[in-house]
Measured scan of single mutants.
Amino acid sequence: QGDIVVALYPYDGIHPDDLSFKKGEKMKVLEEHGEWWKAKSLLTKKEGFIPSNYVAKLN
Results as ranks from 00 to 15, higher is better:
Q1S: 12
Q1N: 12
Q1L: 14
Q1E: 13
G2I: 09
G2M: 11
G2F: 13
D3P: 09
D3N: 13
I4M: 07
I4G: 02
I4C: 08
V5C: 13
V5A: 07
V6K: 05
V6E: 07
A7H: 01
A7Q: 00
L8S: 03
L8I: 09
L8W: 04
Y9T: 06
P10Q: 12
P10E: 11
P10T: 13
Y11Q: 02
Y11K: 03
Y11I: 02
D12G: 08
D12S: 12
D12T: 14
D12K: 14
G13N: 04
G13P: 07
G13M: 06
I14W: 08
I14G: 09
I14H: 10
I14L: 12
I14M: 11
H15T: 09
H15I: 05
H15R: 13
P16D: 10
P16M: 09
P16A: 11
D17C: 14
D18P: 02
D18E: 15
S20A: 08
S20E: 06
S20Y: 04
S20T: 10
F21V: 05
F21C: 03
K22Y: 06
K23F: 07
G24E: 05
G24H: 06
E25D: 07
E25Y: 02
K26Q: 12
K26W: 15
M27S: 00
M27I: 05
M27V: 02
M27A: 01
K28S: 08
K28I: 15
K28H: 10
K28G: 04
V29Q: 02
V29F: 04
V29E: 00
V29T: 03
V29K: 04
L30H: 03
L30P: 00
L30W: 05
E31M: 09
E32C: 14
E32A: 14
H33S: 10
H33Q: 09
H33W: 11
H33E: 08
G34P: 05
G34E: 06
G34V: 04
G34R: 05
E35S: 12
E35A: 12
E35F: 15
W36E: 05
W36N: 06
W36R: 15
W36L: 09
W36F: 10
W37H: 09
W37M: 15
K38S: 05
A39I: 06
A39C: 13
A39G: 05
K40I: 14
K40H: 09
K40L: 13
S41H: 10
S41W: 00
S41G: 02
S41Y: 02
L42K: 03
L42A: 03
L42M: 09
L42I: 08
L42P: 02
L43W: 14
L43T: 11
T44Y: 03
T44M: 02
K45A: 13
K45C: 15
K45Y: 14
K46W: 05
E47V: 15
E47H: 06
E47N: 06
E47A: 07
E47I: 14
E47T: 13
G48D: 00
G48A: 01
F49H: 05
F49S: 05
F49C: 12
I50W: 01
P51D: 04
P51V: 01
P51Q: 04
P51E: 04
S52W: 08
N53S: 15
N53K: 12
V55N: 01
A56N: 06
A56R: 14
A56Y: 12
A56T: 13
K57H: 11
K57I: 11
K57V: 11
K57Q: 09
K57E: 07
L58A: 08
L58I: 13
N59R: 10
N59F: 09
N59L: 11
N59D: 13
N59M: 11
